[in-house]
Design a protein around this nucleic acid. Structure first.
Lengths: 192, 192
DNA sequence: CTCAAGTTGAACACCACTGTTCGACTTAAG
DNA sequence: CTTAAGTCGAACAGTGGTGTTCAACTTGAG
């Protein structure tokens, strides 16, 4: 289905992948990463970068699309719609905290550089997964209903991000992240 | 005590204050705010800005120092050392969430532009207030001790920041922020 | 009133980043 | 092997930020 008359050469394909990988890392590490730095990180000439992505904006959008797709896949693998909501949230945190944090950082960047409204719909795709899990938990009576739903979603993302930052800074071990998140989020979300 | 042979003229003093005010807002709204933009926001010529703050770096440090001092004062007014730890935390959130969020944003920016280590000590002054309150709560048995202290501090700051973002984005009313924070943080921090 | 302190815009050199063009070179595909 | 697709560095123009200098102007203090 991707053979729609693109007919790219194999090395071009490889470079595009390397660029997207490098751009994802670069953008999440430093929002103001330059095109030159990204090209260098991808092991590719600056001209090659521009050959595939004519502008910084286009590149950012491509990275974002890819991150959203990846996040969607990882989330679905955790089957957030099955079993007790509490267990589903545990599975989600365990498998996806890192992926979701990357997405969050990209979203922040894109919001600044591409404008807020333009991103809402794309962002929704990912956020909705979390939100519908929380709604299900409320219906089951295990998650609290005394606070706005937007706030609950914010709480999940915010702590996810915080854990990722701590891991990045070295003050939290990566293996402990999911457990710590669980121990903090479950009581914060639980109904009394 | 501030009369130590500075002998600045009154309008200079006024301009410096206006610049620091504008810079605080500008930096927290947009980390990449330019010197020209800050001067404009302060209602002051670009040259005047440079007359008082010879570089962007110096200005950022001055803003940071001021924010730390302000945060310290606001925190102390909430008397975090008196009464039950839970009540003290409530007072702190009620009076300081906005101030603490501003400080957090500045800290993030300064960390990127001035280097991480250089900021640790200054940051400590503010963080310690929160940390010692949490430690006191642990000793009283009302706050949990099963997670690293650094994580508990991170949790408080992270949700503080999230609430401020939501208020800024319009999805949370400013008057509700403290209450929502309380309702989320207390169960997250409580011992079982 | 007087004068030093302070402000201002215009102009300057400098630098980093963006995006483009070119011509020479390398590599995958048939 | 041939050739079209792709890569590369160098060099370019344009933009926007930083920090400086200067000479004219305004303002506060004594």
């Amino acid at each position: 289905m991707a053979t729609t008359e693109t007919r790219r050469r194999a090395d071009a394909e490889r470079n595009i992948a390397a660029i997207l990988d490098a751009a994802l890392v670069s953008f999440t590490e430093d929002p103001s990463a330059s095109m030159a730095a990204i090209a260098r990180a991808a092991g590719v000439g600056r001209v090659t970068l521009y050959a595939h992505f004519p502008s910084r904006e286009v590149l950012l959008e491509a990275v974002l699309d890819r991150a959203i797709a990846a996040a969607g896949e990882v989330i679905e693998k955790a089957t957030p719609g099955e079993g007790p909501a509490t267990d589903a949230l545990r599975r989600l945190l365990q498998s996806s905290w890192h992926e979701l944090d990357q997405h969050r950082k990209l979203f922040d960047l894109a919001q600044r550089e591409l404008g807020a409204t333009r991103l809402r719909q794309r962002h929704r795709e990912v956020v909705d997964h979390v939100e519908s899990l929380l709604v299900r938990g409320q219906q089951e009576g295990v998650f609290r209903s005394d606070l706005p739903m937007t706030w609950l979603v914010t709480t999940v993302y915010s702590l996810l991000h915080a854990a990722a930052e701590d891991v990045n800074a070295g003050s939290l071990a990566a293996e402990e992240a999911a457990g710590v998140l669980e121990a903090t989020l479950l009581p914060a979300l639980a109904s009394r």
